[in-house]
Design a protein around this nucleic acid. Structure first.
Lengths: 228, 228
DNA sequence: TGCGATTTGTCCGTATGTATT
DNA sequence: TAATACATACGGACAAATCGC
C-alpha cells in the first residue's frame, strides 16, 4: 500500500454523465429489464433532469449497446439473443488474447499484486454468497488486465463490452438464483496469467470463454423457448 | 447483377445523423484540422441547426474518437499522436485477422466477386490519380471483408476505427502530396484473401499493417518535430 | 383507409456553471 | 478579483413521424 492512495477526484461531472451512470446501473442490475420502453418525458421527470441531457445520455448508451433506438419510434433496453451472446464471447476472446500478448513482457510487480488482490476480492464475494458483488469483482479481475496494457483503444473497447456482459451475468443469476458463469476456475486463470507460458494462457482464455458462453447460451435458449 | 438491385432507402434520417455525417466529412477531409476548437454556437449557426441535435452529434463523434471533449471547456477535433497511431494499427491487425478467421470457410461467390470489384475500383482510382477516392476505396476494400463476416460487434468496432484511419490517410496525403499508405501491394492481399492458406493471409495482414504503420508513423514524427 | 393520440425530434429564449483572461 | 466567453442545463413550444383504433 502506498501512503497516499487517494481516490481520483470525479472530474467530468456533468448531468449527462450522471444520467449515463444511473441508467447503466438500472439496466445492469435488471431494474430495467430488456425490452423496456424508455419514454423520454417519463424518464426525465423520474430523474429530475430535462430532456436535453437525458437524450445525450441515451445516445451514449446506444453506443454501448445497452439501449436500442428507433428514430421517431422509441428507445428500448437492449434485448438479448443467442447471436449477440455468441458475438460478445467470440469477440471478447480475441480482445483478451490480444491483451495478454501486449502485457506479457510488461507484467511487473504492481500488476501481479493487483491481480492477486482482485482474485481475493472475487473469492471473498463468492464465499459470502454475494452474487451481485461477485459479478462485479469478476469483471474487475479482467479489467485489471486491460487496464495494465497501456492500450487506450483496447481498454475503451473492453469498456464498451463490459456493460453488456454485466447484464448477461445478472440475468443469468436472476434466472437461476445461483452463481453466474465464470465464477470458478479462476485460480487456474491467475496461475497461468502469472506464469511463463503465453500459449497456455491464450488457450486457457479460449476455453474459459467457451465455458462462459455455453452457460449463458443455454440459459438464454431456455428463456426464449419458455416465452414462445 | 440482380434485376432489382435497389439501394436501401435512407431510413434513420434525423438532423443529428446528418450533422454527424457532415462533421465527420469535414474532419476526415481535413477541412477541420486536428485541434480545431468547435464552438457550439458558431457551428450550429453554420450548419443551420439548433444546439440540441448538434450536441448529440458531437457526443457520437466523441465516441468515434474523432472529437475530444473537455467538460465545460470545449470540444476539439482529435489530435494525432504516434501512440494513437500505434494503437490503431496494432488493434486493426487483430480485428482483421479475427475477421478472416471468421469468414474463411464462408467465402462464397458473392464475397469473392465483391472483393474483386472493389479492388478494381481502388486500382482505377489510383490510376486516375484521384487521391481522395483512392483512400475511400482502400477503406471500402477492407470494409467488404468486415461486412461479410456477419459479426455485428466486429463490424461496429471497425466502423468506429474507420473514421480515424481515414483522417490519418488524408493528413498523410496532404502532407506529402502523394499517395497515402497502403495504396499498393493490394494484388497480393486479394490473392491471399481468395486463396486457401489462412495462415499466409494472417501473416500478410501483420506485414500489411506494419507497412502502413511505418509510413504513417514516420510522417507524424516529421510533423511533430517540425512544430517544435 | 384515414384519424387522433402519443412520442420523438427540433427550436428558442433564458439562466447558471465553469474556465480563462 | 472582475469580466468575458462559452458550455451546460432548463422549460415551453411546435413540427414530424409512428401507432392504434
Amino acid at each position: 500500500m502506498t501512503p497516499f492512495n487517494l481516490k481520483p477526484i470525479r472530474k467530468e461531472r456533468t448531468l449527462r454523465s450522471d444520467v449515463v451512470e444511473q441508467l447503466k446501473e438500472a439496466i445492469i442490475n435488471g431494474d430495467l429489464p430488456p425490452g423496456t420502453k424508455l419514454v423520454e418525458s417519463q424518464l426525465s421527470a423520474l430523474l429530475g433532469v430535462s430532456r436535453g441531457p437525458l437524450r445525450e445520455a441515451i445516445r451514449q448508451l446506444v453506443d454501448q449497446n445497452l439501449i436500442e433506438s428507433i428514430p421517431y419510434t422509441g428507445t428500448y433496453v437492449a434485448n438479448i439473443s443467442v447471436k449477440a451472446i455468441q458475438e460478445l464471447y467470440s469477440f471478447r476472446t480475441e480482445l483478451e488474447q490480444f491483451a495478454f500478448k501486449l502485457i506479457w513482457d510488461k507484467r511487473d510487480k504492481a500488476f501481479q499484486e493487483e491481480l492477486k488482490l482482485q482474485l481475493k476480492k472475487l473469492t471473498s464475494a463468492i464465499k459470502d454468497n454475494d452474487r451481485e458483488s461477485a459479478i462485479f469483482e469478476e469483471l474487475e479481475l479482467h479489467n485489471v488486465v486491460y487496464k495494465h496494457c497501456g492500450h487506450e483503444l483496447l481498454e475503451q473497447t473492453w469498456q464498451r463490452l463490459r456493460g453488456r456482459l454485466h447484464l448477461y451475468f445478472t440475468l443469468h443469476q436472476k434466472a437461476h438464483n445461483r452463481a453466474g458463469p465464470l465464477l470458478d476456475a479462476h485460480d487456474r486463470y491467475l496461475e497461468l496469467a502469472l506464469g511463463d507460458d503465453l500459449n497456455a494462457m491464450l488457450e486457457h482464455i479460449t476455453e474459459h470463454m467457451q465455458q462462459g458462453y455455453n452457460k449463458v447460451e443455454q440459459f438464454v435458449s431456455e428463456i426464449k423457448s419458455n416465452t414462445l
